[in-house]
């Protein structure tokens, strides 16, 4: 491994840029993600920055049960994120549809049918700690030696 690569690995594990998208949830998980930003959990001290623009992000937090309005649009958001990138499903909804997954509803879970999901955080809603631990444990692993793996 070259020196440049090891520097990149270090930087990518210490500076993680996150963008979140709500594809039709009840807002419970959104509130838990926003609680991560607040002083109690304070994700910026771990080097996680939240953007609203997917072009600036490395990690996409997908929240919600995938309503029909998000067909093609979620994939558009996913394609805008520069490589290397991963998506994390937050809450039960992107995994199973949770309580919304009943007969005669229009939702289309799981989200992993539409974009590749690297990790999922179960819970309705998950604790901010669980979200934080998922991001912190995933980022150094998936972004490590990205240029070497690509070749």
């Amino acid at each position: 491994m070259t020196l440049l690569q090891s520097i990149k690995n270090y930087v990518r594990s210490k500076s993680i840029h996150v963008s979140y998208v709500d594809v039709g949830s009840c807002n419970g998980c959104d509130i838990e993600v926003l609680a991560c930003l607040a002083p109690r959990y304070d994700i910026e001290q771990y080097g996680i920055y939240v953007h609203n623009n997917p072009r600036e992000a490395d990690i996409l937090l997908v929240i919600g049960a995938y309503t029909p309005g998000w067909e093609e649009k979620l994939e558009m958001v996913w394609n805008k994120i520069p490589e290397p990138k991963v998506a994390i499903a937050i809450g039960n909804c992107p995994i199973s549809g949770c309580l919304f997954n009943r007969p005669h509803t229009y939702i289309d879970p799981p989200v992993s049918k539409h974009i590749p999901i690297a990790a999922s955080v179960p819970g309705c809603p998950p604790r901010p700690t669980e979200i934080l631990n998922a991001v912190l444990s995933l980022a150094p692993v998936v972004f490590k030696d990205y240029e070497v793996k690509k070749r």
Binding site: R40, Y41, D42, Q45, Y46, P122, R127, P128, T129, E130, L132, N133, L136
Partner: peptide
């Protein structure tokens, strides 16, 4: 380099 360890769920948390 001040940073707190990620908070843990308390033992009384109604987990799975």
């Amino acid at each position: 380099t001040a940073r707190t360890a990620p908070l843990e769920s308390p033992p009384y948390f109604r987990d799975f």
